[in-house]
């Protein structure tokens, strides 16, 4: 069975760029789902099978940290590997994201090679 990825970012431009970078990095996901904030992501996770999550931090409605906190509290989705992809890669924020289950972080701007380096083993 193929794998699905969920991109959580309020910028539609960035969701397109990340999707393109995944393909350029040779990471062959069957489906690339998109959500504009944490609330949309949680709603989508109730309906779709997702294998990997890439989430921004600064988003309206529900930011990335709140999303990761919600995800960590829900048995059905807490085990899905999640990564931060954000301009926010300070030790304090990434430390908090990791304490909530994030496995790593990609700083914007990024290259497909960086995406492959961080996510390669999971695709």
């Amino acid at each position: 069975m193929g794998k699905n990825v969920l991109l959580v970012d309020d910028s539609s431009t960035m969701r397109k760029i990340v999707g393109r970078s995944l393909r350029q990095a040779g990471l062959d996901f069957d489906n690339i789902f998109e959500a504009a904030d944490g609330l949309e992501a949680l709603a989508l996770l109730e309906k779709e099978k997702v294998d990997v999550i890439l989430t921004d931090i600064n988003m309206p409605n529900m930011d990335g940290i709140s999303f990761l906190r919600e995800k960590a509290g829900r048995d059905a989705i807490k085990g899905i590997p999640a990564f931060v992809i954000s301009t926010e890669t300070g030790d304090d924020i990434i430390g908090e994201a990791k304490s909530l289950g994030a496995l790593g972080a990609i700083k914007k701007p990024f290259t497909p090679e960086k995406v492959n380096e961080v996510l390669g083993a999971l695709a």
Binding site: S86, T87, K108
Partner: peptide, 22 residues
Amino acid sequence: NMLGGSVKTMLTDKGRDIQLSM
């Protein structure tokens, strides 16, 4: 947004203590 993230890092140690607006 991306340039704002870089500016945070320029101005403080690893972007601590500065918040960016949307």
